[in-house]
């Protein structure tokens, strides 16, 4: 029914002897918004660069828009918009010149690019900085310019590697809004992020990676359902007592995670768990009942918390 724009089978990438991506399989359909989650060094950027036809794979099969990035890299890249993890704007040129030359790299006519620059500057909230050299922008402004730059060629697939890192909340919401609209227009999105709210908001489907392998894949709701309980109880006994209190509460819930600052108790009825704790004579300093989130899935799958 729907076509796979991206198909990856047995993809492996080694740097010397080090295996950064270890035989992963996945596919992305047209107009889908697909997210990569995973701790630092999981292999997210490496995978994205291979799909973006800017890194050579070691083995496996990759097809993007029906083409092999190793053979038809330029043809694939003509359809992509890329926001790399690390900005690579031309610091000597101005904001508008950066948008302009980037469009030129796609061979786009000057007139076409110039007609788009105002809109892109408005989206990036950089109208006032139009003629300022990029080296004089703040980190978040550079990030916004990099994102705007990726749209100049009207890509079919947008590849965003931690796009909102360094953005203030307002800029982040403007970006989310824009990405929603692009998706409605049929553009396929690939996103890595360390923000779970962002992943839940933006992604139809997610892939959790760790140490080069896929730990899980599915929609945010399906992942939560599969890897967590409906609710979570967070209790704090003070950082010195959390670990010592944990064993006593093990039986009260399906799963327990002891973090340095709090204990997470997983259960479909978290309220009841809290009542049993109190009934047992223990009184946490603070307690919170909440619904499970991707954060919990991430913690379960990678053993690491994202909120430090």
């Amino acid at each position: 029914m729907s076509e796979n724009l991206i198909e990856v089978r047995g993809l492996t990438k080694k740097y010397g002897d080090f295996v950064a991506v270890n035989g992963i399989d996945f596919h992305v359909q047209k107009s889908e918004s697909f997210g990569f989650l995973g701790p630092n060094g999981a292999g997210k950027s490496t995978t994205m660069r291979i799909i973006a036809a800017t890194s050579q794979r070691t083995s496996g099969e990759v097809s993007v828009l029906g083409k092999d990035p190793e053979i038809q890299g330029p043809q694939i890249r003509a359809h992509l918009g890329v926001v790399p993890q690390q900005d690579n704007l031309d610091a000597q040129l101005t904001v508008s010149e950066n948008l302009y030359i980037y469009g030129r790299y796609f061979g786009l006519p000057s007139k076409f690019i110039k007609s788009k620059i105002n809109d892109l500057l408005e989206f990036a909230q950089l109208e006032e900085k139009r003629d300022v050299k990029v080296e004089a922008l703040s980190g978040g402004m550079k990030r916004r310019l990099t994102i705007a730059r990726s749209l100049v060629s009207e890509p079919d697939i947008l590849i965003l590697d931690e796009p909102t890192t360094g953005l203030d909340p307002q800029a982040r919401h403007i970006l989310w809004d824009r990405l929603f609209r692009l998706k409605e227009d049929g553009i396929t999105l690939l996103i890595t992020t360390h923000y779970m709210d962002e992943a839940e908001q933006l992604c139809d489907r997610l892939m959790v990676m760790d140490k080069g392998s896929i730990m899980a894949e599915g929609s945010p709701a399906a992942l939560i359902k599969k890897y967590s309980t409906k609710e979570v109880l967070e209790v704090r006994f003070g950082s010195d007592r959390n670990a010592e209190m944990a064993p006593a509460m093990q039986q009260l819930c399906e799963r327990i995670e002891v973090l340095p600052d709090r204990i997470l108790l997983y259960s479909d009825d978290a309220e009841a768990v809290l009542e049993s704790i109190v009934a047992g004579g223990n009184h946490p300093n603070t307690s919170l009942v909440r619904r499970s989130s991707l954060e919990d899935v991430f913690l379960r799958l990678t053993g690491r918390s994202l909120i430090e």
Partner: peptide, 17 residues
């Protein structure tokens, strides 16, 4: 808003850009 839609072709003799 766009003048024309981007063509998404590989430009010939890219070095000139």
């Amino acid at each position: 808003m766009s003048v024309t839609r981007s063509e998404r072709k590989v430009p010939k003799f890219g070095a000139r850009y």
